[in-house]
């Protein structure tokens, strides 16, 4: 699924990543625990989280996460946006809750980090 379609599915705003709307994403991980993401097959995945700290971006850099979704309409502080921009990591903000965001992506055929549905 292209990042552009994910934006529509999540009724979301793109905060960073104008040039990456064609990026393909097929696996999703949802967690507020960065160790869960670091412990899983999270390369090129979509990371859904309610955290908006710089550690989310560092986790994304270390694990090779493809894009980050902030749920419940959260917007990260400017330094987090700047860091993501510098690293080329797309950031998305969705008004939906974690549960509803995951449900909508699952209904659109996206899988978990292990490829299972």
């Amino acid at each position: 699924m292209k990042l552009e379609e994910i934006l529509k599915t999540l009724n979301a705003t793109l905060l960073v990543g104008d040039s990456q709307l064609n990026k393909e994403i097929s696996r999703c991980g949802a967690s507020d625990l960065m160790s869960d993401i670091l412990a899983a097959l999270s390369e090129d995945c979509l990371l859904l989280t309610g955290l908006t700290t710089v550690q989310v971006i560092r986790t994304a850099m270390v694990a090779g996460v493809g894009a980050v979704v902030f749920v419940r309409g959260k917007k990260p502080p400017q330094e987090v946006i700047d860091m993501a921009k510098a690293q080329g990591i797309p950031l998305i903000s969705s008004p939906y809750s974690m549960f509803v965001s995951c449900g909508r992506l699952h209904a659109s055929n996206l899988t978990g980090l292990d490829g299972k549905r």
Binding site: S31, L33, M34, S35, L38, T49, L51, T53, Q55, T59
Partner: peptide, 16 residues
């Protein structure tokens, strides 16, 4: 925990 750490997964993850 507010930063997304402290769930007791650090050392096991390093071992893995």
């Amino acid at each position: 925990r507010e930063m997304g750490f402290g769930a007791g997964m650090g050392l096991p993850n390093m071992k893995k």
